[in-house]
């Protein structure tokens, strides 16, 4: 038994060094590729289907940014993704990457919101509703990836972890539990198959505005560092975010320049 585990670990090590050659077809088919090389070809080899992955980081760590990119890749390949936004913290403008009706193969990206701001007087246990919804979504076998955002309330009992795991066994989905948690803490990792932790770090990339003055900064881009934990092994990764000018500033097409008359033939 010990030998089998060692061989498996060795294979993963070799896969890390020479990606795509050492993992068997079965293992590849059972995992979801994320489109990020460091996750797909590292020790995690993507995210396993029918398993729980913890996606952790402090409240401003870049974990959701990385996840958005991965969701975008999944939707582009036709996978259906649902995000359970327990505390209504997402902005719609950030997630408008997938609703391209022209592409028939495009997967869907749906969000389940609590709408707590609409009914502030209503007494509802939003966390309980989210957990119920998560189980229903997994059981429905409609979605390929279910993302459960627990925010700072990262309290899932062991019973519920077991229930979710049982539901996953009967589905095709992969569950990602997103937590605002200290990445160094690994107390709750037992319920999950793998754990990805993220955090902002220096160097901070920034771009200057039109004036070129050092104080005129247009965008800020801190580096996102992360660590993948799986089967007792850890792998560090680093990802960066390209600069971005808000889409909302470019919603209108440019007014065509009709002032020039250089090319016009003179009468």
């Amino acid at each position: 038994m010990v030998g089998a585990v060692s061989v498996a670990n060795l294979k993963k090590e070799l896969e890390n060094l020479f990606p795509g050659k050492w993992l068997s077809g079965g293992e590849v088919g059972r995992s979801l590729k994320t489109g990020l090389d460091q996750i797909d070809f590292g020790i995690s080899a993507g995210l396993l289907k029918r398993r729980i992955t913890e996606w952790v980081g402090t409240s401003s760590s870049g974990k959701t940014t990385v996840l958005r990119t991965i969701c975008s890749n999944w939707c582009a390949t036709g996978l259906n993704v649902i995000y359970i936004d327990t505390f209504d913290r997402l902005l719609a403008a950030d997630w408008c990457f997938s609703n391209n009706a022209k592409n028939e193969k495009q997967g869907r990206f749906w969000v389940l919101r609590s709408n707590s701001d609409k009914n502030p007087t209503e007494r509802r246990d939003y966390l309980k509703d989210s957990l119920w919804a998560c189980e229903q979504l997994i059981r429905s076998r409609v979605f390929d990836v279910v993302i459960l955002d627990l925010g700072e309330k990262n309290i899932i009992t062991s019973n519920f972890y077991a229930r979710l795991q049982r539901a996953l066994e009967r589905s095709k989905a992969s569950l990602i539990v997103l937590k605002d948690d200290d990445s160094s803490s690994q107390s709750a990792k037992w319920g999950a198959n793998s754990r990805m932790s993220f955090g902002f770090s220096k160097p901070v990339h920034y771009e200057l505005g039109l004036t070129g003055h050092p104080d005129d900064i247009a965008t800020l881009m801190p580096t996102i560092t992360g660590a993948i934990w799986k089967d007792g092994m850890t792998n560090n990764i680093e990802v960066s975010v390209p600069s971005h000018v808000q889409n909302r500033l470019f919603t209108h097409p440019q007014v065509p320049d009709r002032s020039t008359s250089k090319n016009r033939a003179r009468a």
Binding site: T65, V66, R89, F97, I224, E238, V239, V241
Partner: peptide
């Protein structure tokens, strides 16, 4: 049209995701 940075190992979607306080 993305600005590229040579030091980057992976290119993510531009911009960071905002999680708002309500």
């Amino acid at each position: 049209v993305k600005t590229t940075n040579q030091s980057r190992k992976d290119c993510l979607m531009p911009g960071l995701v905002l999680k708002r306080h309500t």
